[in-house]
């Protein structure tokens, strides 16, 4: 059943943030070797800054994506409203990470080490923020379903008792995928590129999940957050390649394959939009999404190989 309950949403998100930042303090202590008091202090400052910067980031990125529209509506009314569908999820996550980065800098700690310690709790928080969309009505849902499916695969809505509607619960899928990324971050917590790799896998999974969301910040078939996630992934692969060059070892394969996956994703988005069809009737969306997932998994394998080539 679709539920819109902002109080429950904020309560769940606040609770999750407290738990995740407590885990962050624990990571600072165990991974970075900080004392308990220092870890708690740094975590508390990071939490405070993340709340503020997360909100600012979510508003700011949405504004950047939609500034022509917002200028028409009136800039003041946008910045002083707190509608859930007028926030950018990835802007919010970037703000949270920036809060962690700044708090480490303020306390004279190495920000990169702090971010690596934050990779696991951060991915967990990302997952919790997706699960929290359960209380945001139809925001995190996907396509309309002709046949009913149970929760957590779908959520139902009964605007008309004679005609119950079912929508894919994409926010649940995103949350579960992010949990898997959090597990990856935990397993690779000693990796010096732990944070970067966690961001890579969060963004990689979002490329397909964003495509499945019915409500997305977009222009025609271009979904801005999907594009942003792709750019982040490609940027990381290019950084691997540049670092590889400095170490005199070719490491361009993953970055090049990233471009191939980008081309394929554009093609698949055109097919989902009905602009390109294979055969008379076009491919069913499930097949197109299957191809998209396959391409992204191959890219994940490429990233793994590229990381192993780096001497870090």
């Amino acid at each position: 059943m679709m539920v819109t309950d902002i109080a429950a949403y904020l309560l769940f998100l606040s609770g999750s943030a407290v738990v995740c930042f407590a885990l962050y303090a624990l990571m600072l202590k165990t991974r970075n070797g900080q004392s308990g008091g220092q870890a708690v202090l740094q975590s508390a400052i990071a939490l405070g800054m993340s709340v503020v910067l997360g909100l600012v980031g979510a508003k700011l990125l949405y504004f950047i994506f939609r500034f022509t529209y917002i200028l028409r509506l009136g800039i003041g009314s946008y910045f002083f409203s707190l509608k859930a569908d007028e926030l950018s999820y990835y802007g919010g996550m970037a703000g949270v990470c920036f809060g962690v980065f700044l708090s480490a800098g303020i306390l004279g700690r190495k920000p990169v080490q702090a971010l690596n310690a934050f990779a696991f709790p951060g991915a967990l928080l990302a997952a919790m923020a997706r699960f929290a969309e359960y209380w945001l009505g139809s925001l995190g849902t996907g396509d309309y379903l002709d046949d009913p499916l149970p929760f957590p695969l779908a959520v139902s809505e009964v605007w008309n008792p004679d005609f119950p509607e079912y929508y894919l619960a994409i926010f649940m899928l995103e949350g579960i995928v992010y949990l898997r990324v959090a597990l990856f971050a935990w397993q690779n917590r000693e990796d010096r590129l732990c944070f970067v790799r966690t961001v890579f896998y969060l963004c990689l999974s979002q490329i397909i999940c964003e495509s499945m969301r019915a409500q997305s910040i977009r222009w025609l078939f271009v979904r801005y957050e999907q594009l942003l996630c792709y750019l982040v992934c490609e940027g990381i692969l290019i950084a691997y390649a540049v670092r590889g060059k400095k170490q005199h070892s070719g490491n361009w394969q993953a970055a090049v394959f990233g471009l191939v996956v980008c081309g394929l994703t554009v093609l698949e988005e055109f097919m989902l939009d009905g602009k390109i069809s294979v055969g008379e009737y076009g491919l069913p969306p499930v097949v197109i999404y299957g191809c998209m997932a396959w391409g992204l998994l191959e890219l994940a394998a490429c990233e793994h190989k590229a990381r192993r080539r780096l001497k870090l």
């Binding site: 569908d85 139809s138 309309y144 605007w159 008309n160 005609f163 509607e165 409500q215 997305s216 910040i217």
Partner: peptide, 22 residues
């Protein structure tokens, strides 16, 4: 398409909206 607002990116087939509102 979105049953709560006209300002939304949600799109659904016309027959679904039509059946929803009888």
């Amino acid at each position: 398409a979105d049953p709560t607002t006209f300002v939304s990116e949600r799109r659904i087939p016309a027959d679904t909206i039509a059946r929803r509102v009888n």
